[in-house]
Design a binder for these strands. Structure first.
Lengths: 185, 185
DNA sequence: ATATAATATAAGAAAGGTCCAATATGTCCC
DNA sequence: GGGACATATTGGACCTTTCTTATATTATAT
């Protein structure tokens, strides 16, 4: 679980409202982390209870007050502690691989279609990545120093590397299928 | 969500109890799918309600009855339908990448340690993979025809490909850090 | 003789996440 | 004037997952 840490990470650049955070998640880091709008508000409440963030009401004329959250000393400590700590290992959870594992229960034609589908999916991802801009979307001014931009590019690279590896994997399987190397039912 | 489909996939080979399934998950496909014991029992109940599986009580002397679940025609249909359908795309969710994205907030020494930590983690994964047996653990007899074994090797290959790609990524970053290419704070 | 691990199931509670709907207003365009 | 869209937050219902605890027996090790 690290929606909390992702929120703390952004609030450590700049104070934001729940609405701001939703937009930041939807634009900048959408390709490796997503967040439900309700969940962002609930997490902000939880972080407030724990003393990691504080809220300030900014009244506006004729529309609901903005609730601007800023990180506290305790929150900064929690964040830096988590960042400096050991890298969490991604718990494995891959619905596509479940399909691969059980693909033997399909007919040979269906198996071929399945893996061609995988390859197509990964090519589509790669095409998308080419369109991911160098920049971070709105709210850049707060975040995009050369240092932050450098680390942003590193996360993009990771996506590219993984997708290329997966594409090569899927393609090698398609070749093997066509070469008749799948044991029959 | 496809714990349901993973369970259906196994029950399509052979009828099992909840306990059997837990052991199968913990041994065979542990590296890309895990399942909590309570969750397996609850999911079996749900699958029964939907008519995808049926339960048969097998009394045992002096210990709780085994509840052996077997797949129904409806369940087989649901499974094959899902398998033949479009590959689900994994929703992106990567705690490690959240750390990369915010790593700029650490000191330069901490950044180096962070990425060396990533590389070490992936080397550890790769070392583990070498030890993953060719075989599927217990319950093999039910599952390991040459065809099933072929698909099992494919999922292992995927893990290897991804990990190698991630290792290369982490190592290239370590090199760049050592070459002084990280913009200062 | 006793402890423990393994076999086998299940219920309760809490945490996290998703979906949907409600509220309230401002702006922009047709 | 009406419709669509953006701003801004909140609440309810529900689902999934995890953690913990409980029960009961058998096999194995000390």
């Amino acid at each position: 679980m690290s929606l909390e840490h992702a929120i703390l990470g952004f609030l450590n650049y700049h104070p934001y409202t729940g609405y701001d955070l939703k937009k930041i998640f939807d634009t900048s880091i959408r390709h490796f982390w997503s967040a439900d709008q309700s969940q962002i508000y609930r997490t902000l409440t939880r972080l407030t209870e724990r003393g990691f963030v504080e809220m300030e009401k900014v009244p506006q004329q004729d529309r609901p007050d903005r609730k601007v959250y800023h990180i506290t000393e305790g929150g900064r400590g929690e964040l830096l502690n988590w960042l400096a700590g050991p890298p969490p290992m991604d718990e494995p959870r891959s619905a596509p691989l479940v399909q691969v594992f059980f693909a033997g229960q399909l007919s040979d034609e269906q198996v071929l279609a399945k893996f061609e589908g995988f390859a197509a999916l990964m090519r589509a991802f790669l095409a998308m990545y080419d369109q991911v801009p160098d920049q971070l979307g709105p709210y850049q001014e707060d975040i995009s120093s050369p240092r932050e931009h450098f680390f942003w590019l590193l996360t993009l690279e990771n996506g590219l590397c993984s997708m290329r590896a997966n594409l090569a994997w899927a393609e090698s399987i398609v070749e093997r299928i066509k070469a008749g190397k799948v044991p029959p039912k």
